[in-house]
Simulated scan of single mutants.
Amino acid sequence: MISESPLVSVVVPVYNTEHYIRKCIDSIVNQSYKNLDIIIVNDGSPDKAGEIAEEYSEIDKRVKVIHKKNGGASSARNYGLEIAKGKYTCFIDSDDWLNSDAINNLVTKAIKEKSDIVMPDRFNKVFLNGKTREELLFPHYEEIQSIEDFVIDIIIAKGRAWRVSSVLYKTDIIKNNNVKFPVGYTAEDVVFNLEFLSNASKFSVLKESTLNVNKRVNSVTASYRSDLPEIALFIDEKVEDFISLNVVNRDRANIAKDSLLRRNVILFITLEMSNKNNKTYAERSNRIHSVLNMTRVNEAFNRKEYIQPYWNSKLKIYYAGLMDCLIRNNFKATSILISRICNSFV
């Protein structure tokens, strides 16, 4: 245990997780690091999750519960940030849980290296059958020295380090620069990280797992979304904001930015052609063509250079590479058909 123990605020947005929330809160209140300011935001949950959270506030004075109308995870996290008093802030989703030494290890790293942000480089993915797999978030970062390089090479080029859960942030950077989660977007984590890192001076990476993530079939990230093109373009705008403010050499940054947008468009095509979408094939195809014909999307795919993502599935990497090649060479209808065929096997 470190000799210095600054207060750490832990913000937990809660919605429809009554079957998971006890394990989540237990993992926080039982941390080996004790100086915690635990803020649980009940985002209008229709189940008993808010009531369960209140039970903990009655027996542990560190726990505060806020009840609000449903506004999404971003809104809930922003509410928590408003009352966060810790020197550092950490976010946890209410269906996940922390390892017992997670916060102690994060704070130790932050103090030792005088960091504004500490990111774990891995997490444990927990499946419905109970099996667990450790998954790397980003490898080969040892040679990266600056925040600019980390953002360009890892967050944008490789599409990694987007998650805010179990990342340790210096609270005054958030509050002094009015860094908030954008409401209404599923990619709120990466936007928050981009804005925070635009105002940070020092980052550190923790080479161990801190977080256990439940892979639920009914979670937000596992569901079909009809607004993925808008989200992809929104992320593209935020990436451009970071590059404009922080990057001197735009060549490498522009390649990374275009590669990210292309991958996000391929993700949109894949989900648009999934069995979870009830529209007809013609409707799906027309919508995909309309997105592929957008000026900004065309600009990205016209670039010859392409950076492969860091994904833990080689099959997904090959699929994305094939789709990118087809679209870039104007075989758009073929790419749609390939996506439909691949979806039929999932």
Rank of each mutant, 00 (worst) to 15 (best):
M1R: 09
S5F: 05
S5Y: 08
P6S: 00
P6I: 03
S9K: 05
S9P: 12
V12R: 00
V14L: 07
V14R: 07
E18Q: 13
E18W: 08
R22Y: 10
K23I: 03
K23E: 15
S27A: 05
S27Q: 08
Q31C: 02
S32M: 07
S32G: 08
Y33G: 06
Y33R: 11
I38K: 08
I38L: 04
I39W: 06
I39A: 01
I40M: 03
N42D: 15
D43P: 05
S45A: 07
A49P: 05
Y56M: 03
D60Y: 00
K61L: 10
N70G: 10
G72M: 02
G72H: 03
A73R: 15
A76S: 12
R77Q: 12
N78R: 02
A84S: 15
K85R: 15
K85I: 00
G86T: 00
Y88K: 05
Y88P: 04
T89K: 03
D93Y: 10
D96E: 11
L98H: 11
S100Q: 11
S100W: 00
I103S: 05
I103E: 02
N104D: 12
N105K: 13
N105D: 14
L106T: 03
T108N: 15
T108E: 14
E113F: 06
S115L: 12
I117L: 13
V118C: 10
V118K: 05
P120I: 00
R122E: 15
F123S: 09
F123T: 04
N124T: 14
F127E: 06
L128H: 01
T132L: 06
R133E: 14
E134F: 02
F138Y: 13
H140M: 08
I144H: 11
Q145Y: 08
D149H: 07
V151Q: 11
V151S: 07
I152M: 01
I152E: 02
I155K: 06
I156W: 05
A157E: 01
K158E: 10
R163F: 04
K170I: 00
I173S: 06
N176V: 04
N177L: 04
F181M: 11
V183Y: 04
V183P: 06
A187Q: 07
D189Y: 07
D189L: 04
N193P: 05
L194W: 07
L194M: 06
F196P: 02
K202H: 11
F203N: 08
V205L: 12
L206H: 03
T210C: 12
L211V: 00
A222F: 05
D227L: 03
E230A: 11
L233M: 13
L233S: 06
F234P: 04
L245E: 15
V247N: 02
V248M: 12
D251Q: 13
N254T: 11
D258H: 12
D258Y: 15
S259N: 01
S259G: 04
R262W: 03
R262S: 12
N264E: 14
N264S: 14
I269N: 02
M273A: 13
N275G: 09
T280E: 02
R287P: 03
H289K: 15
H289T: 09
R296K: 14
E299W: 09
A300L: 03
F301R: 04
K304V: 09
E305G: 06
Y306P: 04
I307Q: 10
P309G: 04
W311L: 15
S313E: 13
K314F: 11
K316P: 01
Y318P: 06
G321A: 07
M323C: 08
L326G: 00
N330R: 13
N330K: 14
A333D: 14
T334W: 11
I336G: 03
I338N: 11
S344K: 14
